[in-house]
Amino acid sequence: MLTKQQNDSLLEKFKKTQTFKYFYSTLLRFDESLNCFVATEKWRDKEAELLTAAWWMFAEVTENQVVYKGFEQAYSEIFSPIIKQPYPRLENSDYKYIEIDQGWKLWQAAKAIPEGFVLVPVKEIKEWYLDDSENIYREDPYWLCDVPIGEVLEVEHRVSYELDQDPVFAAIQWDEVNGDIGYYETFKSKEEAEKVAAHCKAMKESQESSHAN
């Protein structure tokens, strides 16, 4: 969705096109509230409709180009693909290469996140292919090299996402109930883990000292 400033800028560009010059007359004006052209005389209604249709198509195509360009720039900065921009797309507007198309679909989903939800950063995206011979998914579909020339093989496909998360800190804790070394525990902060580790060490040394006496 374009802002008013972007829409106004786009309208000025549209007014410089041959399409606008062909249909426009002083009997037509642009209605900002309706985002369309209207005629000041009834007999000019048809020209207003045609000019509005051309304007909407111009705006839609331009807006899509802006969105695609923004995505491709972001994708290029993150993944540095060897493919140069603009990335090739199919007739249905999907990207030709599946990795880029998956990134595009994630980009679109991010633009429509419902209220109350948040995005989490993805560290790595992995693709998995079902090896029917062993009924397991593999990251390297090496067997696809054996697909007969001229034939198409349908392959079940999965995608996994590795989330980029902060590290945790592990330490052995002291079992207060049994008075002995307990199991490990993980903590979000290093400081908290160090306190538990120091307490366990101190209790163990105290126990060994008392046994020695």
Rank of each mutant, 00 (worst) to 15 (best):
Lys4Ile: 09
Asp8Lys: 04
Phe14His: 09
Thr17Met: 10
Gln18Ile: 09
Lys21Met: 04
Tyr22Gln: 04
Phe23His: 11
Ser25Ile: 02
Arg29Gln: 09
Phe30Leu: 07
Asp31Arg: 08
Glu32Asn: 11
Glu32Gln: 13
Val38Leu: 12
Lys42Gln: 12
Lys46Tyr: 11
Thr52Asp: 07
Gln65Glu: 14
Gln65Leu: 09
Gln73Cys: 06
Ala74Lys: 05
Glu77Gly: 01
Tyr87Lys: 00
Glu91Ala: 14
Ser93Arg: 14
Tyr95Gly: 02
Ile100Trp: 05
Lys105Leu: 14
Trp107Phe: 15
Ala109His: 06
Ile113Val: 14
Ile113Thr: 08
Pro114His: 02
Phe117Tyr: 13
Pro121Lys: 07
Pro121Gly: 08
Trp128Gln: 04
Asn135Ile: 03
Asp140Lys: 12
Pro141His: 02
Tyr142Met: 07
Trp143Ala: 11
Pro148His: 00
Leu153Ile: 03
Val159Cys: 10
Val159Tyr: 02
Leu163Phe: 11
Gln165Trp: 00
Val168Ile: 13
Phe169Ser: 08
Ile172Arg: 09
Gln173His: 06
Val177Ala: 12
Asn178Asp: 13
Gly179Lys: 06
Gly182Asn: 03
Gly182Thr: 04
Tyr183Val: 10
Tyr183His: 14
Thr186Pro: 00
Glu192Tyr: 07
Ala193Phe: 03
Lys195Glu: 14
Val196Pro: 01
Val196Ile: 15
Ala198Asn: 11
Cys200Thr: 15
Met203Phe: 01
Met203Gly: 02
Lys204His: 06
Glu205Leu: 15
Ser206Phe: 11
Gln207His: 07
Ser209Gln: 11
His211Ile: 15
